[in-house]
Design a protein around this nucleic acid. Structure first.
Length: 447
DNA sequence: TTCTTTGTGCAAACCACAGAAGTTC
DNA sequence: CGGAACTTCTGTGGTTTGCACAAAG
């Protein structure tokens, strides 16, 4: 009898295990951070992290960044940027020249979006990079950094040991000068301009550091390397292999989450979504079936909604070449609508309704869409929300986040980093010493 | 109407290995 | 009781494989 009870409980425990482990892991990590009183490189756990790799979701010191991302052609295409110096966990996208700190979207918003005194701080966008730039090259990317530490041996030496054919590979870092990338452009007030950014221009989608209130200029197609996630030049898109670097597949776009992803007003959209009224969101009023009624009807609604989603994305990203590219490439095969499931789910893995503002920054698309405004802020055309309704929305958002369901998360960034660079044969890890003649780029990958 | 074939989608398994967790002395 | 040494377990991602289901012939 006891055994049976235990078995029954075990099955439940098994179900809860990931959740328990997740929370334990989180609390332990926080304890560690508290004990060490600082943030350490996810790879070596020794040095202070300086750069953030979106693909690995890892904060790395410059030395590890070089080591990790010189391992193979794929890892060298990872887009990196500075780590936010305030939260130390998210990629920085703007540099406040007044405070001399690099900030992620969330911290920038918290620091500059609310305080009237700091909204006038001059800021400049921070470029992403990939490949293996030297200290000097990094200095040229980030002109505000004059003290980038040396990273030891040159990448070329390491690359020379690699067997993967680098011809045609875009991993060679191109200095900004040759890319016709202008220097930093001061940003007077991002937050005030941010609303116009949603749906029009997306600073991070441009490889060029520019004023955020500048009209979006046509993308410089001659820029092969210095780019930000979510932005790819036409040339880059022509290379199928380069899809690996495009992180739209890491965005979890649940149909329930549109209000956050697209900046819909919570007060409207929450009821809308909770009542399954996706149709009305996208103006599909004539759609006969609503999501969730039955599997079949759900599928019908899902198809209609997915069309609406595409439209929404398109309108949100109009003028942005990356948006078109996003839709025409990565999104399309991933935009899967399953008829069997009662819950319609368009999945871009990674971000869900449960994700915080900071979480959104992990994906380039959300960064584009949410640029300048936190996810709970609607792109209201007539002006900003009143502070009361804003805080109200924030409260609702946080309560929602509290009740979030567990979804897979990378609990050990270091393990992910290792797994990413570990050699594989047909998807399986191989021993470190074994002969490695498998070129993933030359294989037909079953996506 | 029933059976067989074909296509599709999903989940599990596989691999190596660093590091966490547990056990023993 | 605390620490060292040792053993066991866990998690990581790309690919393959097997199963279930639906549709067509």
């Amino acid at each position: 009898m006891l055994v049976l009870n235990c078995a029954a409980e075990f099955s439940e425990l098994k179900y809860l295990q990931p959740l328990i482990l997740y929370h334990l892991s989180n609390s332990l990590s926080k304890q560690k951070v508290g004990l060490k009183m600082g943030y350490l490189c996810d790879f070596c756990q020794d040095q202070r992290p300086m750069v953030y790799c979106r693909s690995d979701a890892a904060c790395l010191c410059l030395s590890c960044d070089r080591n990790v991302h010189s391992a193979n052609a794929l890892s060298r295409r990872h887009s990196r940027t500075l780590v936010c110096e305030r939260c130390n966990s998210q990629p920085a996208f703007v540099r406040c020249t007044e405070e001399n700190v690099s900030l992620c979207q969330n911290c920038d918003w918290l620091g500059h979006g609310t305080s009237t005194s700091s909204t006038t701080h001059k800021r400049q966008t921070i470029n992403c990079y990939s490949g293996c730039p030297s200290s000097a090259e990094l200095s040229s990317i980030w002109s505000f950094f004059s003290d980038i530490p040396s990273m030891g041996e040159t990448c070329e030496q390491e690359l020379g040991l690699m067997s993967i054919n680098e011809n045609g590979d875009n991993s060679t870092w191109v200095p900004p000068e040759s890319q016709n990338v202008s220097g930093s452009v001061q940003v007077a007030d991002i937050s005030s301009k941010g609303k116009s950014l949603v749906g029009t221009s997306m600073p991070e989608s441009s490889s060029e550091p520019r004023s955020l209130d500048q009209p979006l200029e046509p993308a410089n197609e001659s820029i092969p390397k210095l780019y930000c996630p979510g932005k790819k030049s036409t040339g880059l898109f022509e290379d199928d292999n380069l899809y690996d670097d495009f992180n739209m597949d890491e965005v979890d776009l649940d149909l329930e989450n549109y209000e956050e992803l697209f900046g819909m007003t919570l007060s409207h959209s929450e009821d809308l979504f909770e009542n399954g009224g996706i149709d009305s969101l996208f103006g599909a009023k004539d759609m006969s079936a609503s999501a969730g009624d039955s599997n079949c009807q759900g599928a019908v609604a899902a198809e209609g909604s997915s069309v609406g989603l595409v439209n929404a994305v398109q309108s949100a990203c109009s003028n942005a070449p990356s948006a078109d590219s996003m839709l025409s490439t990565k999104t399309e095969p991933i935009l899967c609508v399953t008829g069997r499931q009662s819950q319609t789910n368009i999945s871009f893995s990674g971000v869900s309704k449960d994700s915080s503002a900071a979480d959104y920054q992990d994906c380039g698309a959300s960064s584009m869409l949410l640029m300048g405004e936190p996810p709970w802020c609607p792109p209201c055309p007539e002006g900003s929300l009143q502070s009361a309704s804003r805080s109200d929305a924030v409260m609702r958002y946080r309560e929602k986040k509290k009740a979030r369901k567990f979804e897979k998360r990378v609990r050990y960034a270091s393990r992910k980093a290792r797994a990413d660079i570990r050699k594989r044969v047909k998807g399986r890890f191989v021993k470190a010493g074994d002969v490695y003649d498998y070129d993933p780029l030359s294989q037909t990958r079953s996506y």
